[in-house]
Simulated scan of single mutants.
Amino acid sequence: MTDPYQTADAETRAQARALIDTARHAALAVLKPGSLTPSISRIALATDAQGMPISLISSLAAHTAALETTPACALLIGEPDGKGDPLTNPRLTLHCTARQVLRGTSEHDTLRARYLALRPKAGLYADFGDFRFVRFVVTDGLLNAGFGRAVRLSAKDLAA
């Protein structure tokens, strides 16, 4: 069997970047603490100043406990357009390591300002004690750009 993945080129790198830059939410895949059972939740998503994914998550959420135990995770971004076969729409899987950002740090303050500029409604809960920012450090990605167009992307390919 031949490798079904194509090499990234300027067009597919741009398509992947557009998916990241325009995503308002993502499906977050984690491992349940103490098991190999996967779990998926929808999270709000934005980007930091370098164009990498960030989110504001509650410590009360099961996915937060999972990320604290096992920071390796995956994000799926891209939504069907509502017409035809949803599998023909582009989508991007990002393999990541989640890194919690501590309150009271300049990094937190910078992410808070950027996140609220991009997601102003999050101002309703951003300062609740159980919410924190998480930065997703991307290791690689898989772009499904439509039927027969699967592309492997390195972290460098995905850089803004």
Rank of each mutant, 00 (worst) to 15 (best):
D85N: 15
S41F: 02
A66W: 03
I40L: 14
G141T: 03
G51L: 11
T64Q: 05
R42F: 08
L92P: 09
P90C: 13
P120F: 15
Y115Q: 03
L75H: 01
A113H: 10
L102H: 12
A74F: 07
G84Q: 12
R152S: 08
S154C: 10
D140M: 02
L67H: 07
R119D: 06
L76E: 11
R99P: 01
V134M: 13
T110P: 06
N89I: 05
E79L: 12
L94I: 11
T70I: 08
R119P: 09
P86Y: 07
S55P: 06
R99S: 13
K121R: 11
G146H: 07
Y125R: 10
G78L: 10
Q100P: 08
T93V: 15
N144C: 09
A122Y: 09
A49F: 03
C96S: 13
V138Q: 03
T64E: 06
G141Y: 02
F128S: 07
V134W: 08
G129P: 02
L153G: 00
L153P: 00
A113Q: 12
I54P: 01
I43F: 03
P53R: 04
A155N: 02
R135W: 06
S154R: 07
I57L: 14
C96G: 10
T97V: 14
G123Y: 04
A46K: 01
R135P: 00
C73W: 03
A44L: 10
A46F: 01
T139L: 11
A74Q: 14
T88R: 05
A49Q: 06
D81L: 09
C96R: 03
G104L: 08
T69C: 05
A61L: 02
T47I: 12
